[in-house]
Amino acid sequence: MGSLTIHEVESVVAGSVVYPPGGRFGPRIQNDIQLVMLHSGTVEIMIDDLRLTVRSGHMIKLMPGREETFRFASSEETWHRWVAVHPRDLSEEAFRYFDELPTVLALSEEMNRLTDLILSLQLRLSDDDPLLRSLGFSALQLFPIESSRHTWEKEKHSAVYRAIEWVRVHYAEDIALGDIAKACGVSAEHLIRLFKQHEKRTPIQFLWDHRLDRAISLLIHTGLAITEIADRCGFKSSNHFARLVKQSTGLTASQIRQSSWRGLRASSRERR
């Protein structure tokens, strides 16, 4: 990854802020390699002489030494989070490597989860703690991976990203299609069309697939009773859970657990 190594990461800071309609920030000179995740609203950014308009569901890469000015949406709140990685001495080679990556990419679930972890841990750790430095370095490693994926994967609509993120948090609850659509700010019919276009399945099919993934993970990695797993993952009953597991994997819940505990891993990714 260029010439930057984890040992050259001096500190890592993450944050989250909601700007009111019409909010502004800057101009300021950027001191870090910073990844900004936009979750709602829009932002117009001036980076030196480059003007960018970025909407929710995207992440922005900011480079040290550049002058930045931010203007946020005039008609709604804008929520964004960030991870700022401060290197001790960024070589020309490393700077060029990061600078040549895209400035704006679709925000991924992996980057979201990594940001969640950094935000949580920094409440108890100093900015230069080795664990935080490692996680910040991981974010910089993840960005070019997302960049490569972006070149061949068609960008999803921001409502799809919001729906996926919302389902991953609320999957254990009693959820209807209307709940997901409301959380994403679109109609149920429009959300179905978007999911069929980008995910090749409906939002409800995505929900049940995610529930099944989580439940099978609990089967493999815990000793919880099957009835408890079914309840924790939002299934109507243990029989409902058992039927979907069999349909999806060709194995019963007990067979999956027994196989994994004998070292023969059977996961939800092995569906027929």
Rank of each mutant, 00 (worst) to 15 (best):
L123K: 13
S260Y: 00
T53F: 01
H210D: 06
H157M: 06
V167G: 02
G22P: 03
I226H: 07
I256E: 00
S237H: 07
R168V: 01
K61M: 14
P102R: 13
L219Q: 01
V36K: 03
L38A: 12
A242R: 14
S11C: 06
C233M: 11
F143L: 12
L105F: 06
L50E: 15
D49P: 00
L119E: 13
V186G: 01
S158Q: 11
N31F: 03
A94N: 04
V186Y: 01
P203I: 10
R243E: 09
F98R: 03
G178C: 04
E67R: 14
R269S: 03
L4W: 12
V36I: 15
V186P: 09
R214K: 09
I47F: 00
M1E: 14
P21Y: 05
L142V: 10
N112Q: 09
H170W: 05
L212N: 01
L142A: 08
G178V: 04
M46W: 07
F195W: 09
F241Q: 11
M37F: 06
L125M: 15
L50N: 08
R269N: 09
E109A: 13
D32L: 05
W79C: 12
R193M: 11
S108G: 04
F98N: 01
Y171S: 14
V13W: 00
Q122Y: 08
H210G: 03
R71C: 02
G250K: 08
H240P: 09
V43K: 07
G57Q: 03
G223T: 15
H190S: 12
E155N: 09
S260W: 00
R28D: 07
V36T: 12
R81M: 10
S187V: 08
G223N: 15
S16I: 13
A266S: 09
A181M: 08
L107A: 07
T5I: 06
P102N: 10
E155H: 08
R232C: 11
G234E: 09
L218G: 00
M37G: 01
L101D: 12
L177Q: 08
Y171P: 12
A183S: 15
H157Q: 14
P87D: 10
L50S: 11
E109F: 08
S126R: 10
S40E: 13
D49E: 06
S138Y: 10
A139L: 07
L264R: 11
K196W: 08
D128V: 04
E153G: 10
P64V: 10
P87Q: 07
E189W: 01
D89L: 04
